[in-house]
């Protein structure tokens, strides 16, 4: 690692956009790790497609964040030259792929949220965020459909697939609360109609998730203790490893292009 990290002026809007951009980049990167390794060719393509959807969302959001910040940063610098503590993504999304069931459960829990979130954000008072939302909504709607179908087949499949899917739900559940939390910096954006209050999406999210989980003959954990930290840069040990791979080229060969 030879290139220094950038500094970012995290005004409320820059921070807000970076958080969503980081969500998309990190989950997209996790999905891209499946490329060439999925259980079957068809699913290999499906996961890579979703990864590319998310990468596209990340690029638009990073570019917009750079625009709002108005400094020398750009999408590449945001992605490649920030340390782990500067990343603002949800902890859920950096969790390792594990087996196919775990990847699907992670995707399902997040897509059920992202679908509602982007649909609501289409009414954002911020024209750029509304435009990004309009494009992202169609993508996340399909991610939800795809992961829902697999949830049902894994849960209501064999004893083995049921056990793995249930284990993944149990392990990942405590990361879902972070999707619905806000901090002081987001309050103003919500009050001015730029952002949506994620708490308002929770009832519908829970309804969607409970419906599919029960159709899949799986169960939601009873525990309501929720892990926080990703939004303020306090990450699990997994994100550093992910970034060391994602950033290795730019850190070793600053500004390299090909």
């Amino acid at each position: 690692m030879t290139t220094a990290s950038i500094s970012v002026s995290e005004t409320p809007l820059v921070l807000y956009v970076l958080r969503r951009a980081d969500d998309a980049l990190i989950l997209g990167h996790r999905l891209s790790e499946w490329c060439g390794h999925a259980p079957m060719l068809e699913e290999d393509m499906a996961l890579a497609n979703m990864a590319l959807d998310l990468l596209g969302q990340a690029r638009e959001l990073y570019s917009y964040a750079a625009n709002v910040e108005g400094k020398a940063n750009d999408e590449d610098k945001f992605a490649y030259l920030r340390d782990v503590r500067q990343y603002r993504n949800l902890l859920l999304l950096e969790q390792p792929n594990g087996d196919f069931a775990r990847t699907i459960v992670r995707q399902f829990l997040y897509s059920a949220f992202a679908d509602l979130y982007w649909r609501a954000m289409m009414n954002s008072a911020d024209a750029m965020l509304a435009a990004i939302a309009a494009k992202s909504e169609k993508e996340s709607a399909y991610h939800l459909r795809h992961s829902s179908e697999w949830m049902v087949r894994l849960g209501d499949g064999t004893e083995e697939s049921h056990g793995r899917a249930q284990g993944a739900i149990d392990d990942l559940w405590s990361f879902t609360g972070e999707m619905f939390g806000i901090d002081a910096s987001e309050r103003d954006l919500i009050d001015t109609g730029i952002a949506v209050d994620p708490a308002s999406l929770h009832p519908q999210w829970l309804k969607t998730v409970s419906g599919i989980v029960s159709e899949a003959t799986l169960a939601l954990p009873k525990s309501d203790w929720m892990q926080q930290g990703g939004r303020s840069g306090r990450h699990s040990e997994h994100l550093g490893h992910l970034l060391s791979e994602l950033q290795s080229m730019q850190r070793m060969f600053p500004g390299v292009t090909w």
């Binding site: 079957m40 393509m45 499906a46 179908e149």
Partner: peptide, 16 residues
């Protein structure tokens, strides 16, 4: 393509 049922076949067709 290969798929376990019609719904997944349709999704896989879309993806591929």
């Amino acid at each position: 393509l290969h798929a376990t049922d019609a719904t997944l076949a349709l999704q896989a067709a879309r993806d591929i």
